[in-house]
């Protein structure tokens, strides 16, 4: 089974637009939205919910005020400044449990934390696994891992041989969680100095975890000089450019309609995304021969 993850480093470069289009173009696949903080892929795929599950992960300390003698040891030892006036701030608590182990009167217990939901939905393009991390929750990396695991199980039981994942922005915990062990990463960038700077860092993460990469330059006509610079930098690092997609307001219009852009328009954007998908699927086929 193959798994391609779409990442970018910088947010808002067009990951979800590209994944939505791949959903419409790829034959047999399962879709996974690994941006569990701010999931948007479902807005393009009109899903109908098949299953909703609670995601329990991590713990939060709770102080029983009746038992607490206000000795202050927990406050002194907590490295996350999560205990003030003998009360736990659940947002700052990292769930390490140190306080519960040291409390001399056993006034502190660790409570399981419901930190979000994950969903399996049906779309006309195939099954979609997505999630919603609770507000201000931790463990986004673990929720991403849960989404990927579900997607794999569905692919196995339904006989699909490809998973397409929409990744989160950044380079930290949820990105690493959505990247590790993937067959291929497509890095969507834009020809802005910020986009180029962020591409360099996310490329570093892919290299660190040994995942092969392709690059897509989105809104490539926004700054031709920067686009050329990205191309030459990729060339010098042996990174293939899989596609160049021009800027077009048609993309915003398709998002407003809630339709993947390749199904909304026949214009240049669609042609370029189709060409890019062709390149990527050839690459995925070849990698299975290796």
């Amino acid at each position: 089974m193959k798994e391609i993850v779409i990442l970018s480093g910088k947010g808002g470069t067009g990951k979800t637009t590209i994944v939505g289009s791949f959903a419409a173009l790829a034959q047999s696949k399962v879709l996974a939205d690994c941006d569990v903080d701010a999931a948007d892929l479902h807005l393009l795929l009109s899903p109908s919910e098949r299953q909703k599950s609670e995601f329990w992960s991590g713990q939060v300390a709770y102080i029983d005020r009746d038992r607490c003698t206000e000795c202050g040891l927990c406050q002194e030892l907590c490295r996350f400044d999560a205990i003030k006036d003998f009360m736990v701030d659940p947002v700052s608590c990292e769930g390490c449990g140190f306080c519960s182990h040291v409390c001399p009167v056993e006034a502190i217990t660790m409570k399981e934390n419901m930190s979000g939901y994950w969903f399996i939905s049906d779309t006309k393009y195939g099954p979609l696994v997505h999630a919603r991390l609770g507000i201000a929750q931790e463990n986004s990396g673990k929720l991403v891992a849960a989404v990927r695991q579900q997607a794999k199980q569905i692919a196995e039981s339904e006989g699909e041989d490809l998973i397409i994942s929409d990744g989160p922005p950044g380079i930290g915990c949820p990105v690493i969680s959505s990247l590790s062990g993937a067959s291929l990463a497509l890095l969507v960038t834009e020809p802005t100095l910020s986009g180029m700077h962020d591409l360099e860092r996310v490329l570093g993460v892919c290299r660190h975890f040994g995942v092969p990469v392709l690059v897509c330059i989105n809104k490539c006509d926004l700054n031709e000089g920067n686009t050329q610079q990205i191309e030459s930098q990729c060339l010098s690092q042996g990174v293939e450019i899989a596609g160049r997609v021009p800027f077009d307001n048609i993309v915003s219009q398709s998002i407003v309609q809630g339709i993947p852009v390749v199904e909304y328009s026949n214009g240049t954007v669609t042609q370029e995304i189709e060409r890019m998908w062709h390149t990527i699927s050839a690459r995925l086929r070849n990698s299975s021969k290796e």
Binding site: A136, E138, P169, G170
Partner: peptide, 14 residues
């Protein structure tokens, strides 16, 4: 602030 709604965002906004 970084994008998203999870722990890095809360840490930055607090």
């Amino acid at each position: 602030v970084p994008p998203g709604t999870s722990c890095p965002v809360v840490e930055a906004i607090k």
